[in-house]
């Protein structure tokens, strides 16, 4: 019996953990009591929060976060830490040095020096076929993630004036 207990303890110590690490991908994700829509939210988790995941149940995954156990929709999870918003990224695109390297291959170094990192350069390069004015107009309609989320959750029923 003693041997059995020792083996049992040893065995469970070596038992593979069911857990997998996930990160909240959506701006906010409700941790639900049950694996179904409309279930009582235990708490709301913010984007980037690390959760320990278990087995999937339909569209949901059983997770533990901040000591609470519940379910999160798979759609809201990523299995990698999230990349930062592109505007905050460390812009490591070294266009000029890359082009200089290439310049030896198929164009002159003088031409390569003319490279610009300004992303609006794409409009110039596309010439008349790109409508930069209309594009700028499109950008003016930008709505924040927070306002959008409140709108689809019916927290705010009307558009912002």
């Amino acid at each position: 019996m003693k041997t059995f207990l020792v083996l049992l303890v040893f065995y469970f110590a070596c038992f593979p953990t069911w857990g997998a690490e996930f990160f909240i991908k959506s701006l906010k994700a409700p941790l639900l009591k049950e694996a179904k829509n409309g279930s009582k939210p235990l708490t709301t988790l913010e984007r980037g929060t690390k959760v320990d995941g278990g087995s999937p149940e339909g569209a949901f995954v059983a997770v533990t976060a901040s000591g609470a156990k519940g379910f999160i929709n798979k759609l809201f999870l990523s299995d990698k830490p999230l990349a930062e918003k592109a505007s905050l990224l460390n812009q490591d695109v070294d266009i000029s040095s890359k082009a200089r390297k290439r310049a030896s291959g198929f164009t002159s170094a003088a031409a390569a020096r003319g490279l610009k990192e300004d992303s609006d350069q794409i409009f110039k390069n596309l010439g008349k076929e790109a409508n930069a004015t209309e594009f700028k107009k499109l950008e003016t309609f930008l709505v924040s993630d927070e306002d959008g989320l409140e709108f689809i959750q019916d927290v705010k029923k009307e558009l912002k004036p």
Partner: peptide, 11 residues
């Protein structure tokens, strides 16, 4: 854009 931003915030 508002509806789209909300969905983009989710997924």
């Amino acid at each position: 854009n508002t509806l789209g931003a909300g969905l983009a915030a989710l997924l």
